[in-house]
Design a protein around this nucleic acid. Structure first.
Lengths: 279, 279
DNA sequence: CCGCGTCGATACCTCACGGGTATCGGTGAT
DNA sequence: ATCACCGATACCCGTGAGGTATCGACGCGG
């Protein structure tokens, strides 16, 4: 199977429409139809049900979509990492969620920079749920993830810290007088619904809350009294005076891990991981 | 990057010889040379140092070899799993080291078969260190690994059991009278060196001990008085009367885990994993 | 010092196949 | 009944993958 065929298939599987997929791929529709049919013949598997009026994925097609995306990511990662290895003599790209781990991250970077043999570390801040993709397709070498929010599937990890969560409320809100709150109480505050985070595919679940992409955005909304949220304790130092926190003991505890793609444990990466676990 | 180019590169990188690589690929040498050069141009990276009289990998080439193998495995896995999904309506392939987990494995299979909605499970017994490859390229869906011997890099795992290790000696050997032994003592028994296991690339490290590939082979050698070994406790029930065991408290404890490729958690696989963790 | 063998690169040819345009056939909506 | 939509088919063309023949550089034995 060639990556070209795989890319064609994934495009069609995502669009569920040969014409649009062809447009996205910058080609005409007939050769795309032909290529997909040829792939089906070679695999001996029907990938799409063509119900004249759109297409749908078969079971085998769903498998190939899942596995094929992972394979394409791996190919992209190989290409990117090779390019990087050829140009700069090293350097690491560390990815973290914008606004998270605001204490841990500078500590880690300082501690690592002080190590003998440390290489330059580029920090890549991204939105929620994008880290895994960046790690898997080679745009980043190592990342800070927060379990159970992020999934570490397919990545190697080391535990760093575990912490409880707190509710974030506008200063002066009646509930800020409470010693603790429950998840149910926070979720039920009138007029301040819990925000909705994007899923792994970048789309938002349905619901009443505002759609948020990163922490800055969320904190602003809370300051405006338009939302309430539950976040890890470590976000406290970065809150302005307009926000208050109340512990939420029944919220799941959050584990911060350092994660990296398997089989890519370079010397520099190993040093960074060692530094992180010693903090 | 096309998989074809990647396969060509990997062949040359493994042979370090364009002629032999071309032969292995079933093609002539000139087009292979040209394809590799073109890949280098497209990547903007020199992959080989052509020192007239053989070739050697550059740093970037080493990166691409490592990452490219993983990528090719992922592509193969996608292809294999799609074919399987298209033909049989399911079934799982479970891989285990021949001779290991001899108690756990039948228990797991029986318990799973009794579950509602269980699918047929094919058991694939393999040599030491081959499980990861089989899982990564899609020939197997799930496996039993033994940490820290096997590496679970790039696989999702659930812990099943942890156990200590025992020395395996021929019955009647003077040391069988001891209550415990240390690793050092077992390694130093005259005339009975510790065996050498193959590494991840299938080659054996240098040393005095015999080369072994699976447990049956090893136990036979011990019975002949040609080797001593340290193995997990759970191997005891499968030893014949000609072998004796002595605990080795300072040997690393062995954790048996059930492992599967990430992103491939089918319903059937989830059931098997759930059954395993409940044992 | 000179052939000779080895090995990757180059030159050149051929044809398969990837991609384009034009068009068809089937189906649901109006 | 007609039309719009969408994937499949027919057919053409140019690129490029792969083949053969040969070159150029280097190491080695006589």
């Amino acid at each position: 199977m060639e990556t070209r065929e795989l890319r064609y298939f994934v495009a069609v599987a995502e669009e569920l429409h040969f014409g649009r997929a062809a447009e996205r791929l910058g080609m005409a529709q007939p050769p795309l139809s032909r290529a997909v049919r040829q792939l089906e013949r070679r695999l001996g598997a029907t990938l799409f049900d063509r119900n004249s009026r759109g297409v749908t994925l078969t079971e085998a097609g769903a498998v190939l979509l899942r596995e094929g995306r992972a394979a394409l990511d791996a190919v992209d990662a190989a290409e990117r990492r090779t390019r990087r290895a050829a140009n700069g003599p090293a350097g690491l790209v560390l990815v973290a969620k914008a606004g998270a781990s605001s204490e841990l991250l500078p500590k880690l970077l300082d501690a690592y920079a002080a190590e003998p043999g440390a290489v330059p570390v580029d920090v890549l801040l991204c939105g929620v749920g994008q880290q895994e993709g960046l790690l898997r397709d080679g745009r980043a070498d190592v990342g800070l993830l927060h379990l159970p929010f992020d999934s570490a599937a397919g990545l190697d990890v080391e535990r760093l810290t575990t912490e409880g969560q707190v509710a974030i409320l506008p200063a002066g809100h009646p509930l800020t007088g409470r010693r603790t709150l429950t998840m149910a109480e926070v979720a039920a505050i009138p007029g301040m619904p819990m925000p909705r985070w994007p899923g792994r595919d970048g789309t938002y679940p349905d619901g009443p809350g505002p759609e948020v992409r990163d922490h800055a955005q969320l904190l602003q909304l809370i300051g405006l009294g338009r939302a309430a949220a539950v976040l890890p304790e470590s976000c406290r130092p970065m809150l302005g005076p307009d926000l208050a926190t109340v512990p939420v003991p029944d919220a799941p505890r959050v584990t911060t891990v350092i994660a990296w793609p398997p089989h890519s444990r370079s010397l520099a990466l190993a040093g960074l991981i060692r530094t992180a676990t010693r903090l």
